[in-house]
Amino acid sequence: MLSDQAQAVRIPLVSAIDPTILNLQLGLDLPDDLGDLNTTSATELDISAAYREKRDLAGQAAQVVLDHRDCFNDLYTDQASRIQRSPAQVSEVVMPSPAHCRDGWPSTSIGRQGACSDHGGVVPGNLWATLLFT
């Protein structure tokens, strides 16, 4: 059983041009046909599909560990059991959002005193995509 606190998983929003992420994903030698990385952004479907794919792969690895328990210590078998019990699919993705006025107005004054005072106040931005599971 998953605890109530484990029902939401948060993923940090990273810039597509962050060199650390590019090196991690693509290696140090970047291909010539990447296109405009500034316009690359993940959608709810992309994030759901990525979670499902990673969960499927982790589930396959966990099954190998569980099938051969005598070859692994308790730390690995416990982790494999947790992976097997984790949700296979995301029910909803709440995407990151910038700070904005409560009525939806995209003020350029956010961060200064009085910003959005005529628009119901400031709603803080969300820098994380949140995955929800049922």
Score class of each variant (00 low, 15 high):
residue 73 N to G: 11
residue 64 V to M: 06
residue 108 T to C: 03
residue 77 T to Q: 02
residue 98 P to T: 07
residue 56 D to V: 13
residue 59 G to C: 03
residue 17 I to S: 11
residue 65 V to R: 02
residue 118 D to R: 15
residue 105 W to F: 14
residue 46 D to P: 00
residue 77 T to H: 00
residue 129 A to N: 05
residue 134 T to A: 15
residue 50 A to C: 01
residue 72 F to A: 02
residue 19 P to D: 01
residue 101 C to R: 02
residue 102 R to A: 15
residue 3 S to E: 12
residue 70 D to Y: 01
residue 76 Y to R: 06
residue 111 G to K: 07
residue 13 L to M: 09
residue 9 V to H: 06
residue 130 T to D: 05
residue 19 P to Q: 00
residue 134 T to L: 10
residue 50 A to S: 11
residue 72 F to W: 09
residue 90 V to P: 04
residue 49 A to D: 15
residue 30 L to A: 01
residue 37 L to Q: 09
residue 30 L to H: 01
residue 103 D to M: 08
residue 116 C to L: 04
residue 51 Y to K: 05
residue 29 D to G: 01
residue 92 E to Y: 02
residue 102 R to K: 11
residue 123 V to H: 01
residue 48 S to I: 03
residue 108 T to G: 10
residue 115 A to L: 06
residue 78 D to L: 10
residue 49 A to Y: 10
residue 27 G to F: 08
residue 35 G to W: 03
residue 19 P to A: 03
residue 39 T to E: 13
residue 68 H to S: 08
residue 115 A to G: 01
residue 31 P to T: 05
residue 115 A to P: 04
residue 12 P to Y: 02
residue 55 R to N: 11
residue 48 S to L: 04
residue 52 R to I: 12
residue 64 V to D: 10
residue 13 L to V: 02
residue 94 V to C: 00
residue 107 S to G: 07
residue 17 I to V: 12
residue 7 Q to D: 14
residue 118 D to P: 04
residue 86 S to L: 13
residue 88 A to T: 15
residue 29 D to Y: 02
residue 19 P to H: 01
residue 117 S to R: 13
residue 2 L to F: 10
residue 85 R to Q: 14
residue 125 G to I: 08
residue 32 D to F: 09
residue 134 T to R: 15
residue 89 Q to Y: 14
residue 12 P to Q: 01
residue 72 F to V: 04
residue 33 D to P: 10
residue 23 N to K: 13
residue 84 Q to P: 03
residue 31 P to Y: 04
residue 36 D to K: 02
residue 44 E to G: 14
residue 101 C to A: 11
residue 66 L to P: 00
residue 73 N to V: 07
residue 65 V to N: 08
residue 9 V to D: 04
residue 78 D to R: 07
residue 38 N to D: 12
residue 36 D to H: 00
residue 7 Q to A: 11
residue 120 G to A: 09
residue 78 D to I: 04
residue 32 D to G: 11
residue 114 G to S: 07
residue 124 P to F: 12
residue 20 T to I: 11
residue 70 D to M: 02
residue 94 V to T: 14
residue 59 G to S: 12
residue 44 E to Y: 02
residue 82 R to T: 08
residue 38 N to Y: 06
residue 13 L to G: 09
residue 131 L to I: 05
residue 132 L to M: 08
residue 83 I to C: 05
residue 22 L to A: 05
residue 39 T to G: 12
residue 42 A to G: 02
residue 14 V to I: 13
residue 16 A to G: 14
residue 44 E to V: 07
residue 83 I to Y: 06
residue 27 G to T: 09
residue 51 Y to D: 09
residue 29 D to H: 05
residue 18 D to K: 12
residue 94 V to G: 00
residue 57 L to G: 08
residue 29 D to L: 04
residue 43 T to V: 10
residue 28 L to W: 04
residue 115 A to K: 04
residue 45 L to E: 15
residue 125 G to Y: 10
residue 25 Q to M: 12
residue 65 V to W: 07
residue 130 T to N: 02
residue 21 I to N: 01
residue 37 L to P: 07
residue 26 L to T: 06
residue 36 D to L: 00
residue 79 Q to F: 09
residue 56 D to P: 08
residue 96 P to G: 01
residue 43 T to P: 07
residue 88 A to R: 13
residue 4 D to K: 11
residue 6 A to D: 14
